[in-house]
Amino acid sequence: MEGALKLWAVILIVGALNYASRLSFIAIFARREMPPLLARALRYVPAAMLTALVVPMVVAHAGMPDPTHPRVPAALLAVAVAFVTRSTLWTLAAGMGALWALQALGR
């Protein structure tokens, strides 16, 4: 499948599955209890999936792992700032600021 058609297929299928997940226990399985083991496992979806998404964006540069890239220390600083402040704005400011500073120094 090519180009725009494939992208629209992604949008409609992911959108439908997301809506089905949102609606699941509210309407579709309204009379059922969530199995306790599932309830437990779902709590770890954000930490696991988002970390799997983020790590390659930080460490892999142009497709190759590069742990010396200035993105790595900038991201570590952002983690510390996010941990303390819980603020998206401060995290963005610290991470982008650190990256720009390191890039300017390395030039």
Partner: peptide, 9 residues
């Protein structure tokens, strides 16, 4: 990645 770090950390 910074937006996601703000969610995860």
């Amino acid at each position: 990645p910074l937006c996601f770090i703000a969610l995860i950390a």
